[in-house]
Amino acid sequence: MPLLTLSGLVAGHGDPVIGPVSLRVMAGEVVGLWGPNGCGKSTLLNAIIDRAVIFAGQIERAPRLRLAYQEQWSVRLPIMPVTGGELLRLMGACDQALPDALRCLLRRRIDRLSGGQYQLLRVWAALSGGADLILLDEPTNNLDPERESLLLQMLAKVPAQRSRRLLDVGSGRAVLLVSHERRFLDAACSRVIEIG
């Protein structure tokens, strides 16, 4: 049973932006959505989380599916006395398997992190927060090549992790990620779907 099924989905905001799109995301997969800027990749993710208008088709989620969604542009306030560790705990994220490059950020205020550090911390919060399906919108934003490879390592661990709730639909969790960087998608995903 798939975690997520899109059937002939046409979505947008005022007007249709993308579709029809049909796809299935199975447990254990890392699925990439690739397309040029403006083709509606982010709108598709927004439709999945009920933040866009569905003009045709349908979206089916597995029962009790828990989602995490990492937006393209993160909330970042100029003065924010919250540490990296506190940020992770908000999402119930586990910090035991945290990469060393991020572990040193646990005690630092997030308003004193670089854009790349903050981005990776948020992606980790989404990946390790107990969600069954993780939606990542342009997760390579703000990342230099070194951090991009760290992100690849983080994503590689996801298919092997077991869902905490959905034992009836498969043994693993899944990631649906959107990027305009084809090279990154090829390296990170078990399959890539071209849209637009």
Binding site: D50, L67, V75, V82, L90
Partner: peptide, 14 residues
């Protein structure tokens, strides 16, 4: 706090 830093979490999970 979660709603502030991860504003789509509640909506995504209904």
């Amino acid at each position: 706090m979660r709603a502030r830093f991860f504003p789509t979490y509640e909506q995504a999970n209904r």
